[in-house]
């Protein structure tokens, strides 16, 4: 049973590793945007005359940029629309008739993908930031394992949100609209463009009540040691549990719709 899902995870890793040029192109794009962000955010600090905004000083902010750019492909906000495509074309019938738990199988594939991108996309950009830019190295030994756990939770939150998004195809037939909206909103709300600490306090309060910061800002904050680690991890875990349960429910509804109503 476990062997089957481990195998699916390994296959996910292998599948995404077969596109070497896409990895290079993606990393190059991430780096270009990273440089632009470093430029803009440095200018902001220069204009302010240094100091710190909500725990983020200049070094932390630049570290934030490279962590964020590197995590982007690991967490994956947009690129993976395989599920909705399979639903749209009807290929999902094949997936539904296999003796497995579809949600778990897709999750394993996604973990394989995330694992590959962590090695191929995150590590190079982390090194780039650490070697060529001012970099905030964690000051405590527990930060590294906590960051790993937080990143894993971030991938899980992202997977479950994308799973729900894909499942909407069963009712909408075409999820491009929903996914477009999600793509624009989720990255900003997750803290990709500017750290959430830069937002007004009321906006921060609202944002941290959504699952989005759990996908990006949370692991970054763990790394640069801003905020309480236990609170960040607890919040991520809560979202994983809630979203996984909702996903399970929606899958059951979708199965009912397909199998019983024949949609």
């Amino acid at each position: 049973m476990i062997g089957c899902y481990l195998r699916i995870t390994a296959a996910g890793f292998h599948r995404f590793s077969s596109y070497r040029h896409a990895v290079l192109a993606g990393t190059a794009t991430n780096i270009v945007f990273g440089l632009i962000k470093v430029g803009i955010l440095s200018a902001v600090y220069l204009a302010r005359g240094g100091g710190s905004i909500g725990g983020y000083d200049l070094t932390t902010t630049i570290t934030y940029v490279w962590l964020g750019q590197g995590l982007l492909a690991v967490v994956d906000f947009w690129s993976n629309d395989e599920l909705s495509e399979r639903i749209r074309t009807g290929d999902v019938v094949v997936d539904l008739s296999r003796p497995w738990n579809l949600q778990a199988a897709l999750l394993c594939t996604d973990l394989g993908r995330a694992g590959f991108n962590a090695a191929a996309r995150f590590v190079p950009q982390l090194l780039l930031g650490a070697v060529f830019f001012p970099f905030h190295w964690p000051t405590d030994a527990w930060v590294a394992p906590a960051f790993l756990v937080s990143t894993l939770l971030a991938v899980l939150v992202s997977f479950h949100l994308r799973f729900l998004l894909g499942m909407t195809t069963f009712w909408l037939l075409d999820s491009r609209g929903v996914r477009g909206l999600y793509g624009v909103l989720s990255v900003t709300m997750a803290g990709l463009e500017i750290p959430l600490s830069f937002f007004p306090v009321w906006a921060q309060t609202v944002l941290w009540c959504t699952p989005f910061p759990s996908m990006l800002q949370a692991p970054i904050n763990v790394f640069v040691q801003v905020g309480s680690v236990t609170q960040l991890l607890a919040q991520q875990l809560l979202w994983v549990v809630v979203l996984a349960a909702v996903g399970r429910l929606v899958l059951a509804r979708a199965m009912h719709k397909v199998v019983v109503q024949g949609g």
Binding site: M1, G3, C4, R7, I8, A11, H14, R98, P99, W100, A105
Partner: peptide
């Protein structure tokens, strides 16, 4: 070959 191997695990 790998698809087959994966199916072997799925169908145990």
């Amino acid at each position: 070959r790998e698809s087959f191997e994966l199916l072997r695990h799925i169908y145990r």
